[in-house]
Simulated assay, not measured.
Amino acid sequence: MLQRIRLLLFPVLCLTLLPGAVATSQGDASRPVIFPTLSVETLARTKLNLPSEFAGKVNLLLIYFEPEQARAADTWMPAAEALQHMNFNFRYYKMPVSGPENLIFRWWDSSSLRSVETDPETWPWVVPLYVNKQDFRRALNIPNEKDVVALLVNRSGQVLWRSSGPLSEEKKAALSNAVTTATR
């Protein structure tokens, strides 16, 4: 008898709950993607509250999840540096992403990154993120951790443009156009 009641109630529950779930997922697709609010520390040991304390009117975020992806992120650097020299409203950040580790790991990881980024002038622009990676990816609509992700965001954290993988000529032109459009 109980099983029969469950079988009868299941379709009713589905019909009741499904429209709300569909409406929610459709509503999410129309909302802009926003960089999550985070308190972080740069390699220069400067504390930042992101996204409000991004230095540029528009900011290129080079996000990567594995140390091996740093090379792909570095392919973006000549274009990012050139844009920064030509447009004072533009800044770039390299953001290696790790899980929410303890303080000892964070100290060790940041020290290791400083030994790789040997020019202290670059340290303010390298921002290690220690976050729940799945939640972070979900917030930014990053489907996986396989490639470096390039996001152009404004000071509100709204994603204005995105790409992934190493830089190509097509991506370089698209980034330049997006920066020009966003800084007008």
Rank of each mutant, 00 (worst) to 15 (best):
V148D: 12
S156H: 05
W123D: 00
L151F: 07
L129G: 08
W123L: 04
S110R: 12
P100A: 15
K133A: 12
W123A: 05
S156V: 04
W123R: 07
R137A: 15
N132D: 15
P124K: 00
P96F: 08
F136Q: 02
P120Y: 03
E145I: 13
P96S: 12
F136D: 12
K146T: 14
E101I: 14
E121Y: 00
L103R: 10
T118K: 03
S98G: 13
L113T: 04
V153W: 01
L103V: 10
P124Q: 05
P120L: 03
W107Q: 08
T118C: 03
L151G: 01
P128R: 03
P128E: 11
D109P: 00
V131N: 11
N144E: 14
T122Y: 02
T118P: 02
N144Q: 06
P143V: 14
P143H: 12
W107S: 07
W125I: 06
D135M: 07
K133I: 13
I142N: 03
N144P: 11
S98Y: 13
S98L: 14
V126N: 03
R114D: 00
L129N: 07
V127G: 03
R137V: 06
N132S: 15
N154E: 11
I104R: 09
E145A: 15
A139G: 10
N102C: 02
V97H: 09
N102W: 04
T118F: 01
K146C: 02
R138F: 09
G157L: 01
D109M: 10
E117M: 00
P100D: 15
